[in-house]
Amino acid sequence: MFPSKFDYHRPSSVQEAVQILSDNPDAKVLAGGHSLIPVMKLRLATPSALIDIGRIDALKGISRANGSLRIGACVTYNEIANSGVVQDAAPLLAEAAGQIGDRQVRYRGTIGGNLSHADPASDLPAAALALGATLHVSGPNGSRSVSASEFFVDLMMTSLQADEILTEVEISAASAGTGSAYVKFEHPASGYALCGAAAVVTRGAGGSCTGASLCFNGVSATAVSANGVAASLVGSDLSDGAVESAVSNLSIPDAAGDMFASAGYRQELAKAIGAQALRTARDRA
């Protein structure tokens, strides 16, 4: 690969990384590199410096405490997909991470890089949305938290400030009676989601639905929530008919088309894939 020239920094703490980032406005944060390096290779991105956060141990842990799952930004897809802790507390995230790219990509790519890059066709954004994840970020003025629903702003744009780094993703551990599913219809070339549906449903004691969420990757400029549609399932028996009827009203605002698939087709895919995700989540609840 023949990128333009750039400086390379390898900080050993988040504070140091934030400092370097503040000092170098044209710098980019490098985690797994699987989105950044290809665009640098094509010289579509020409950062003045890379700040490699891959050696910061504080960004690498998975833990569960007080009903909360915390995943460091530099945890790889592979670690998430295969972590017993994640599989138990947020199986949706593990399932989505296991569908990203191929084995080599999953060994390098990280959750923090994925969410910060905010590719709408990637697999984690909808899962983070559907799980109501909280994203912890650090900047020169300290740390703050952002909910996933406020994090994704537009195509590859997040509410991260230029001098902030995503450090940790926090998710409430799944409660009893909850089932989830991530179903992807993949683009045959990229393997990204032409439409990826993340569904979570909770059944009450009598089996009827007490909570549901449904979010999509790949259909519009950001991962989007269709929780209005999901909410209409609350109180239902979650039968195939109830699911069909709920998704029949699905319409994703600003659905986007490209040369491979039109916006209208993606809307239809969202109905089919969304229903499949809801049915599978129900069966697992």
């Binding site: 094509l42 683009h187 045959p188 070339a189 990229s190 393997g191 990204y192 040369m259 491979f260």
Partner: peptide, 29 residues
């Protein structure tokens, strides 16, 4: 038959210029 196609727009610009867009078939297909 199912995946590959080179797409040029009306001005003859190649739109499928990378493997992100041009679908070389994969083993699992």
């Amino acid at each position: 038959s199912l995946y590959e196609t080179a797409v040029y727009d009306d001005g003859a610009n190649l739109l499928s210029g990378t493997m992100l867009d041009y679908a070389v078939p994969k083993a699992h297909f």
